[in-house]
Design a protein around this nucleic acid. Structure first.
Lengths: 189, 189
DNA sequence: CTCATTTGCCTAAATGCTTTAGGTATCTCC
DNA sequence: GGAGATACCTAAAGCATTTAGGCAAATGAG
């Protein structure tokens, strides 16, 4: 009986790949066990349960996304930083739809605290340093950016913008232009 | 043996209520059968399968949302129409989180064609008539509005803006102000 | 009113995912 | 080489989905 060499790490990584292939919601311990040619019960030595797997995939995806965003932000400011950051989100979602869906998986407060969520928030605020926004407008702007990025990416992923002119890339560019303009001229009270 | 009086209509309506209570993803034929005190197999006379139920709940929610939006838009234009429309989305999502989640359920092309999706698109374009946008900018703006509304509402529903100042309502208002300004001063090429 | 038909709901059973309990085989390292 | 830890297993129970086939209640025609 040759051991499969399971570890939590490998299982989560394979789970993330599975998510990209079949969708995050379809990630199941059974499918994961099949992939390692192992009985389902064996996974329970490495994962608490199926929810644990999903939580770990979510945390992995948040980490990967934050890493890429940090790279993209290095040495950039203003609109340059804004578009680089936005593109990281969109590109990641298109390259890894299952992982991106995982980043929207609800986390318990503890799981959220152990995630890269905080880094995302910090980076968004870093971008806004290139614009002249004092609190509470800065927080409103953080929420606007989060809404537009997440909203656009998830509508695009759902196929909302395909098969209709103009090209989604064109809209994305123009929306980022508009967002930049909005941040430069944030309306006062 | 008294009959329960099942109909597709009643089942879908109850399914929507169930979605609001336990979440759209947790809507199951078993749970629905329990609610009517009926065996699961009995539902198959009225629904093709569990996917059929979810599709029908999605269509119901899209219809309800379109009806409310149409009411809200009547007699309004410009920013007034924009905020009324936006508020309908947000209020519906907060009052009926399960139904709102259902509106994001992927539909087959046929199911989408039979849905109120077209009315939503038409209403969004109607709002933009209050602003001076020619194609293709109008389409970019439609996509921006969709992204912001959906993105904000889903982040808020996921708890993203709770337990932190400023109030979510405040951000919503200021984001709509910013959106109105963006549409009035849409950046040219 | 009665009988035939349709319709509504049932039982039964197969399949698949999740989870726990407890066992055997394989590695590690002294 | 043997002790102990670790990796993976079998077995079984619980719950959701789906299909097949059956009895009973409603419906309507004569």
């Amino acid at each position: 009986m040759v051991r499969a060499g399971l570890t939590t790490e490998r299982l989560v990584r394979a789970g993330a790949e599975l998510a990209d292939e079949v969708g995050f919601e379809q990630v199941t311990l059974s499918a994961l066990a099949r992939r390692f040619d192992v009985k389902v019960a064996s996974l329970y030595s490495h994962l608490k349960n199926s929810g644990d797997l999903k939580t770990r995939i979510a945390q992995l995806a948040l980490r990967e996304l934050a890493d890429r965003a940090a790279d993209a932000l290095a040495g950039r400011a203003g609109k340059d930083a804004l578009t680089a950051f936005a593109d990281v989100y969109r590109d990641y979602a298109r390259a890894h739809p299952g992982r991106y869906a995982a980043t929207r998986h609800p986390l318990t407060p503890e799981a959220a605290a152990a995630s890269a969520g905080g880094r995302h928030a910090a980076m968004t605020r870093a971008i806004l340093r290139g614009y002249d926004l004092a609190e509470p407008d800065q927080t409103h702007a953080v929420r606007l950016l989060g809404s537009v990025f997440h909203g656009y990416v998830s509508l695009e992923l759902a196929g909302g913008f395909s098969h209709s002119a103009p090209d989604s890339q064109e809209s994305w560019t123009r929306i980022l232009d508009a967002l930049d303009a909005t941040l430069r001229n944030w309306p006062g009270d």
